[in-house]
C-alpha cells in the first residue's frame, strides 16, 4: 500500500493510547529507569521516554519472550499425556521502536516463518502492531546506514512517527495493520502539510561501510584465525550481546519436571557461550572463543543475508554499548573490511 502521511499532536498521544488500550491492547514502550531505558508495559505516554538514542534491550521479547512454554505434560497410569495449550497472545502495540528495530523484526519474521512455521512466534506476531519513531539523534555506536537502513526507514513499522520541531509528530501509515490502529482514532490525526521535509528532521548518520560488500569481505576472512583471535581476546564469553540484540533468535529447550507433571520451555541462548555447541560426546566444534566470535559475525553478515535475504545485523549498536569488555562491533567490522583478502 502507498504510505499515507498524517500528523498527530503530542498531547493527543494520550487519547490514542487510551483507544489502543480500550481495544484490548497491551502497550509496550521505552521507559526510563535510572540510567537505562527499557521496553515495559505502559498505559500512558507520560510513562514513555522519548529523549534517548537507543534502549538497552531490544523489544524482541514482544514476539519472542526470553522464556516461553512450548508444551506441558502429565504422567499418569503409566502413560504420558501432552497437554495442548491454546495459544492466545494478548494483542500488543510496541510503541517507540527505532527504525533499525523495525527492520530487525522483519529478520525475526523471516527466521520463524521461512520453512517451519513457528506458531508460538507467528501467533504473537499477528497480534502485534509496531509503531516506530524515527531517530533525530544517533551516537557513535549507531551504524544503521551501513546495514541497509536509515534513521527514518519505514521498513518493518506499521506506523512510523517522526518528531517535528514543535513536539508534534509526522505520522506515516505504512501497512494495513497500521491503518487499522490509526483509523480507530481517526479524529486525533490531521492531514500533514505537504511541505514537511522529513529528511531534514532526521539524525545525520554517514555510511561507515558498504553493507552489500560486507558478505564477500567477511567470507574471505573465514580462515584468518589471527584476526578472529585478536578481536576476541578480550571477549569473556557472556551472552550480553546476544540478549540485547534485536535480531539474535537462538534458543535452547529445557524440560522442567515437577513430580509427575512437567513443562517444556524454550529460553534465549547465545552462540558466545561455550556450551552452545557442546556435543553430548564431549566434543565441541567451536571450542574456542574466537570460533564463537567468528560465528556471531558470520551469522549476521554472511549466513543470514544468504539464507534469508535479510540483514542479520541492523546497526542498532546495542551490543557495543552493553558489552562489559568493549567489544565494539562497528570497529571490528571496519577492521574486517580493511583486512587483506
Amino acid at each position: 500500500m502507498t504510505i499515507e502521511r498524517k500528523k498527530i499532536k503530542k498531547e493527543s498521544l494520550g487519547q490514542w493510547f487510551e483507544k489502543m488500550t480500550a481495544a484490548g491492547n497491551r502497550i509496550m514502550a521505552p521507559k526510563r529507569n535510572k540510567k537505562q531505558v527499557c521496553f515495559e508495559t505502559v498505559t500512558s505516554p507520560a510513562e514513555v521516554a522519548f529523549d534517548y538514542v537507543q534502549t538497552t534491550v531490544s523489544a524482541k521479547r514482544a514476539v519472542f519472550p526470553p522464556v516461553e512454554e512450548m508444551l506441558a505434560y502429565k504422567f499418569a497410569d503409566k502413560e504420558t499425556k501432552l497437554e495442548e495449550k491454546e495459544i492466545k497472545p494478548q494483542p500488543t502495540v510496541v510503541f517507540g521502536i527505532r527504525p533499525c528495530d523495525a527492520d530487525a523484526f522483519v529478520t525475526l519474521y523471516e527466521v520463524f516463518s521461512r520453512d517451519y512455521k513457528d506458531d508460538l512466534f507467528l501467533n504473537r506476531w499477528e497480534q502485534t502492531t509496531f509503531i516506530g519513531i524515527s531517530c533525530i539523534q544517533a551516537d557513535s555506536a549507531c551504524f544503521c546506514t551501513s546495514t541497509g537502513g536509515n534513521p527514518g526507514n519505514t521498513k518493518g513499522s506499521d506506523v512510523l512517527l517522526t518528531p517535528l520541531k514543535n513536539g508534534d509528530f509526522l505520522v506515516e501509515v505504512v501497512t494495513e495493520k497500521g491503518k487499522k490502529i490509526v483509523t480507530a482514532a481517526e479524529n486525533l490525526f490531521s492531514s500533514a502539510d505537504s511541505d514537511i521535509d522529513k529528511e531534514s528532521l532526521l539524525a545525520k548518520l554517514p555510511n561507515k561501510f558498504e553493507g552489500k560488500d560486507m558478505k564477500a569481505k567477511i567470507n574471505a576472512q573465514f580462515d584468518n584465525e589471527a584476526l578472529w583471535s585478536r578481536q576476541s581476546m578480550r571477549c569473556i564469553g557472556c551472552g550480553a550481546c546476544a540478549y540485547v540484540c534485536p535480531t539474535c533468535q537462538c534458543f535452547g529447550i529445557e524440560d522442567e519436571r515437577f513430580g509427575s507433571k512437567g513443562k517444556r520451555i524454550r529460553c534465549w541462548d547465545s552462540c558466545c557461550f561455550g556450551l552452545f555447541t557442546l556435543h553430548t560426546s564431549g566434543h565441541n566444534p567451536r571450542h574456542t572463543q574466537w570460533q564463537r566470535w567468528r560465528q556471531r559475525l558470520m551469522h549476521k553478515f554472511s549466513y543470514e543475508p544468504d539464507n534469508l535475504g535479510v540483514p542479520g545485523c541492523v546497526g542498532c549498536g546495542r551490543c557495543s554499548r552493553a558489552c562489559p569488555t568493549d567489544m565494539n562491533i562497528l570497529e571490528h567490522m571496519l577492521e574486517i573490511a580493511e583486512e587483506k583478502a
Binding site: I236, C238, G239, Y243, W268, F273, L275
Partner: peptide, 26 residues
C-alpha cells in the same frame, strides 16, 4: 535475562562447567 555477564566477568567463576548448565538432571 541470564546472559551470565556477572559470571563471565568474575575471575573466581572459573568452573569449566557451571552447575546452572547441568540440565540432566537440572
Amino acid at each position: 535475562f541470564k546472559c551470565y555477564a556477572c559470571r563471565s566477568a568474575c575471575p573466581m567463576c572459573y568452573c569449566s562447567r557451571c552447575t546452572v548448565e547441568c540440565n540432566q538432571p537440572q
